[in-house]
Design a protein around this nucleic acid. Structure first.
Length: 465
RNA sequence: UCCUCCUUAGCUCAGUUGGUUAGAGCGGCUGACUGUUAAUCAGUAGGUCCCUGGUUCAAGUCCAGGAGGGGGAGCCA
């Protein structure tokens, strides 16, 4: 075949009626009549299928029509014509059919019927062939590209931070160990401890849980940077919003205070949501219809309304004075529980909420201390149904204060000497945040399980595919 | 890790106080139909009742242990 392939998305967006085109894709369904058949082909470029009419007069019809079952792969040449039927404006009159790969209807797991998301997770290698996962993966791609576009437009520098890290005390969670030591016979030293001097890096090494500290070093030289890469947490978390391997975006900006940080985060999220609403309406319409009737409304609400900003102390006051009875007691100094966050976001404000200025005792050592000596310049952005989608802070730029905090929390001054150097030499006020990419996708797609917004989810006990 | 629910045909599920040959819808297959839209109509095939052990004359059903999965909680993004 020498004709250039046309993607199905083009057929629906460009005026191609009366032209001959060549499409390649996978059969979604076949409806046979006595003298002809309707085929629906999808090539992933859009959620829409191209309807193709195959007449039995075509050469080889009897041979290939039986092979064109759901899931089979074909190339078809034909003429685009206005559709006689309802449901689509354009369809193709087939002229020539080439079968690349058949799919035995007896064993092919995807049928012309609804499947549960749980079943599709078990066949993650085939689920991209469904409308749902096609839509989700297209949106995932659009959001990833949009993230780079947003930051690049604002003059941010894309920084690659290490995936293998020797600092095991960042406190962001349990870490996966990385080693080349023989696991059958781990070398021990005189005191009976593992002899890491024999390991590849000569010391304990792990997969990164955050690129933030590395990111800060670049922000304190290049002004505005962002990272976007895989992140690993070995927590035994079995929930709809945790993965052992996920992707995280971490911008870090010199000369930003907490307010500027929040302004950026809000503008950033809105930019991404606008892309979804304007450029991927077909996919959102499908997901709204199929899974979440309120999806598009919710996205539009977030686009058009500023997030509520309150301090932790104000949040505690609201929770205490609410008539609501919580399973976990509310008191100043304790972290907000899921039920507390849900109440604020879903009931009290019915809006995304940014909570700031948490007690320093429940936040990380690097967050900037307030004048009250009790709270730090932290901010968590809470979304309905998802909880914390962004966590960030203004960073402690004062050398003495940061050092004191490291000592207070019993962390190793030695391990953080390089980080402290950024405050010893030309320190600057700066801020940043971390956005969980898959949590963003939960919000944008309306999916309710994080395992359904990443192609091959890694969770405790599951690294299949 | 804790709490809770679930596991029966390819998929989604019914299955009575334990009782003969375990059912339905969808999907598959066969046939009918000149415009269908998860086509329609008729027919048909399809079972390790998650695994192991136990109780019983008799277990899909009751008991114990195990495996897998869903939801919630904690941890967090």
């Amino acid at each position: 075949m020498t004709v250039k392939r046309t993607k199905i998305k083009q057929i629906f967006t460009e005026a191609l009626v009366d032209t001959e085109v060549w499409v390649q894709g996978w059969i979604r369904t076949r409806r046979e009549s006595k003298t002809f058949a309707f085929l629906e082909v999808n090539d992933g470029s859009t959620i829409k299928n191209l309807q193709i009419i195959a007449d039995q007069q075509l050469p080889g019809y009897a041979d290939w029509i039986k092979e064109l079952t759901t899931g089979s792969c074909v190339g078809i040449k034909g003429k685009l014509v206005p559709s006689q039927g309802k449901g689509q404006s354009v369809e193709m009159q087939a002229q020539q059919v080439e079968v690349y790969g058949t799919a035995d209807a007896e064993t092919y797991p995807l049928q012309k019927k609804g499947h549960t998301l749980e079943f599709l997770r078990e066949i993650a290698h085939l689920r991209a062939r469904t409308n749902t996962f096609g839509a989700v993966y297209r949106l995932r791609n659009a959001m990833a590209f949009g993230i780079h576009q947003y930051f690049q437009d604002q003059g941010f520098l894309y920084l690659h931070t290490p995936i293998l890290t020797g600092s095991d005390t960042e406190g962001a969670g349990e870490m996966f160990a990385v080693t080349t030591l023989p696991l059958q016979q781990i070398p021990k030293n005189d005191t009976g401890e593992i002899d890491f001097t024999q390991d590849f890096f000569g010391k304990p090494t792990h997969l990164t849980v955050s690129g933030q500290l590395n990111g800060e070093t670049a922000a304190l030289a290049l002004s505005d940077i962002y990272t976007f890469g895989p992140t690993f947490r070995a927590e035994n978390s079995n929930t709809t919003r945790h993965l052992a391997e996920f992707w995280m975006i971490e911008p870090e900006m010199a000369f930003y205070d907490l307010t500027a940080n929040m302004d950026l985060a809000e503008d950033f999220l809105r930019y991404l949501i606008r892309i979804a609403l304007t450029q991927h309406r077909d996919d959102l319409d499908f997901l709204t219809k199929q899974y979440d009737p309120d999806l598009i409304n919710r996205l539009e609400f977030v686009l058009n309304n500023p997030f509520i900003r309150i301090t932790y102390t104000e949040a505690i006051d609201i929770l205490v004075s609410s008539a609501k009875s919580f399973e976990y007691p509310v008191s100043w100094g304790a972290d907000l529980q899921s039920e507390h966050e849900r109440f604020l976001v879903e009931e009290h404000f019915a809006s995304p909420v940014i909570v700031t200025d948490y007690p320093k005792t429940i936040k990380a050592f690097y967050m900037r201390q307030n004048e009250d000596g009790k709270t730090v310049r932290a901010m968590d952005i809470l979304f309905p149904g998802i909880g914390e989608i962004i966590g960030g802070s203004q960073r402690e730029e004062r050398y003495e204060v940061l050092l004191a905090r490291i000592q207070e929390m019993g962390l190793s001054e030695q391990d953080y000497s390089w980080y402290l150097d950024t405050r010893r030499y030309g320190s600057a006020p700066h801020s940043g945040f971390g956005l969980g990419f898959e949590r963003l996708l939960l919000f944008v797609t309306g999916m309710s399980n994080i395992r359904d917004v990443i192609p091959f989810p890694r969770t405790p006990g599951n690294a299949d595919f």
